Simulated assay, not measured.
Amino acid sequence: MIYEISSIHDERLKLFTSMTEAQLRNRLNQQQGIFIAESPKVIRVALQAGYEPIALLCERRHIDGDAKDIIEANPDMPIYTGTREMLAELTGYTLTRGVLCAMKRKPEPALEEILRDSQRVCVIDAVCDTTNIGAIFRSAAALGIDAVLLTQSSCDPLNRRAIRVSMGTIFLVPWTWLDDYSQLHALGFKTAAMALTDNSISLADPILKQQSKLAIIMGTEGDGLPPETIRNANYTVRIPMYHHVDSLNVAAAAAVAFWELAGVHK
């Protein structure tokens, strides 16, 4: 059913316009909340990954254009539409590709479940920048990382901007939350903390590729990884660099580490 929007105060649009990310996460219950996917390409990836749509918000021109196949595949989904100017007023900014879809979250998988057949995983430790989260997921998908784990102090991967930056790859790589690094060690993983210390080894050190199960730990850009995390890791790893450059953006560093240690060398 298609609904023409005539007021920016329409109550049916609250989940698109006035709810915070935290409110969306808790919209249904603690196990299953809501997230917003933006752009037809990203929405299609989410649908193919089995996420259930709730409602679509788009410009009129996209109903028979970019969003046509999405709408036809989900005939019971309510469609809210209006002019580009109306939607910009509703959301506070001009939409990317003019399409938003509210979708139900899936229950988060157990750590043991997604690590059962994994060999190379990434741990995102206290990274709160949504752009970096999305970029890390995109590299993880492209370069053969089997799963992504996030500490509770990290940003939610289903944040709207993180999803958009990832180009939907957040829906392709299994992920869940990590409570304690001891869980990884108990499941047979060696941990490699990406950090600059006096006793760090090179990313090219053969010992890293020899590990049957390896977790690559990426920390926040400002402070890096906590000293305790580095201390308890099996390896501390640095990326060799030149011109006295001492660090890379965390998303760039993750891509380099994934290329060297993950799928392309399996």
Score class of each variant (00 low, 15 high):
E108P: 07
P109K: 04
P109W: 08
P109F: 08
P109C: 07
P109R: 06
A110T: 06
A110K: 14
A110Y: 02
A110H: 13
L111K: 11
L111C: 04
E112S: 15
E112G: 15
E113I: 02
E113H: 14
I114W: 11
I114Y: 08
I114G: 13
L115T: 11
L115C: 14
L115K: 08
L115H: 12
R116N: 06
R116E: 10
R116C: 05
D117W: 06
D117L: 01
D117C: 02
S118Y: 13
S118V: 00
S118W: 07
Q119V: 00
R120N: 07
R120P: 10
R120M: 04
C122E: 00
C122N: 09
V123W: 12
V123I: 12
I124V: 15
I124T: 10
I124Q: 13
I124C: 13
D125I: 00
D125P: 03
D125V: 00
A126T: 01
A126L: 03
V127M: 10
V127S: 13
V127Y: 13
C128L: 08
C128W: 10
C128P: 00
C128H: 12
C128G: 01
D129H: 09
D129G: 04
D129Q: 06
T130W: 05
T130H: 15
T130K: 11
T130V: 14
T131C: 06
T131L: 02
N132G: 06
N132W: 06
I133K: 08
I133C: 07
I133F: 12
I133E: 05
G134V: 01
G134N: 06
G134A: 07
G134S: 12
A135Y: 03
A135R: 03
A135C: 04
A135V: 00
I136D: 14
F137V: 06
F137Q: 07
F137N: 10
R138W: 01
R138A: 07
R138S: 09
R138G: 07
S139D: 03
S139W: 01
